[in-house]
Amino acid sequence: MSLEDLYREVIIDHYRSPRNREPLKHADTRAEGVNPLCGDEVTVELELSEDGSIDAISVRGQGCSISQSSASMMSELVKGKSRDEIEEVVEKFRAMMDLDGDATDVIDPEKPGSVLGDIEALYGVRKFPVRIKCANLPWTTLAEALERTN
């Protein structure tokens, strides 16, 4: 895994043109995540339907390309999904980034993007363990926002 793989154009693209950044007018829940060591910040807002699926999501913040692109790609991935589907995606992402595990149980390196889409670009962050927390920040913030609705 080279540096080029880490900073694949998809990451730069989501960093420069983050998706789902507009604040929600009627958010049902929100959470703010901060990484005090590096100062990365992510805010997640959600509009939920009756059954708990995500109707609308806003993610915004400031920080490195890894944290901010992860937020942007996450927002695309979970939008419109049911609680069960979200849990499955969250678990797959967690497994992909887990250095104790083998990410190839989850994704297929031969077919990049075939399981989780764009966000598989973050697979390369495993090579840079100190940056994994950047990739995870939006996801832990999403989990906190969802937990607040329980």
Binding site: L3, L6, Y7, D40, G63, C64, S65, I66, F128, R131
Partner: peptide, 14 residues
């Protein structure tokens, strides 16, 4: 530019 310093540090480390 708009490269975050943490990204710079990772690239420079490489």
């Amino acid at each position: 530019g708009d490269a975050h310093p943490h990204d710079l540090a990772t690239i420079l480390d490489s």
